Simulated scan of single mutants.
Amino acid sequence: MTTTTTITKIGLGKNGPLVSKLGLGCMRMSPVWGSKGNDENESIATIQQALDSGINFLNTGDFYGHGHNELLVGKAIKGRRDDAFISVKFGGIIYGGQFRGLDLRPIAIKNFIDYSLVRLGIDTIDLYQPCRLDNSVPLEDVIGTVADLIKEGKVRYLGVSEITADQLRKANSVHPVTALEIGYSLADRQIESELLPAAEELGIGVVAFANTAEGLLSGEMKAPLPANAYQNHFPRFQGENLVKNLEKVEVLKTMAKAKGSTPTQLAIAWVNAQGDHIMPLVSMSRRSRLPENMQAMEIRFTPEEMNTLNTHFAPGVMRGGTYLQR
């Protein structure tokens, strides 16, 4: 399947580089949260086809698949480093398939980055960010360490992920923050009250993941979920909560049918429409997914359609929390 869709470029924040308006999340290409990894050759081909299609923002983490994801990205970009903008998250400690906490000590960060550079086969990481903050280490020390790595030439830009508006302002006062990575979707709009306005005010780009709210907005989820589904850990996907939440998704399914699109495409398109400084970050591990996700970037909503979505999916209407609502 071929597509003529052209992915536009945006400035990542007011002082950042030009990147694709659609980002590629690489996490699911590796074994994470107990899942099996995907076919490695297909994953590499997907990254390369994304680069060929103008999607240059590749998102990974040093703890995805215990380094497997960085090795995979490294293989995919070999010989074409300049085509890719590499975003790496650090700090997560995974053992036995479980998230065990964070290690954000400066000495650990300096250790993490050298391993990442070797696995990726590059000299400089474009965007480097703590995966979240937990107050175990002063924010100034975490951000200051990345600032030191920027001075050393090992990192180009500072990013942050899954933090509060106050933490974002504080981090930006230590060193200019280029991008904020955060979960954002029609079903998860809690960041609209404080965090998004802060990012816009400070001129920080927003990399928005979980656009389908862990599959809730895909139109394909049915209650109850299979016993082995990772979503079962979160109240949103349990019992009557899931039944009621899926009823809300019917409106999205109806609109998608009328527009000749899929609910997933509309979910991505809605995030894309929230601002020129906001990048939908979409996880893909198969080339077959690229055309539909790229086409989602061309979907436009009438004022009436946007009003319907914003009203029907008003902040707080979804029942039950997820890990995004810590």
Rank of each mutant, 00 (worst) to 15 (best):
S35E: 10
T124N: 03
I122L: 10
S30V: 08
G101T: 14
G34Y: 01
G92R: 07
L102M: 14
G67E: 05
V32Q: 03
S35I: 00
I107E: 15
G79D: 13
V32R: 01
I77S: 00
G65V: 09
Y64V: 07
Q48H: 03
Q49L: 08
H66A: 14
L51N: 10
L158N: 03
T124E: 10
V88K: 03
G54R: 08
D39R: 13
G91V: 07
A147V: 12
L102H: 02
S136N: 12
G96S: 12
T46V: 09
N38A: 08
E70A: 04
I94G: 00
E42F: 05
D134G: 07
N56A: 07
V142C: 11
M29D: 02
E42M: 08
S136P: 06
P31T: 07
L117N: 12
Y64R: 12
L102Q: 05
N38G: 09
V32G: 01
A108V: 15
G54N: 12
D166F: 02
V146I: 15
W33G: 01
G92A: 15
M29H: 05
I86E: 01
N38C: 05
G101M: 11
F63E: 02
L104R: 06
V32H: 00
F57T: 07
I125E: 04
Y115G: 15
Y64L: 08
Y64W: 11
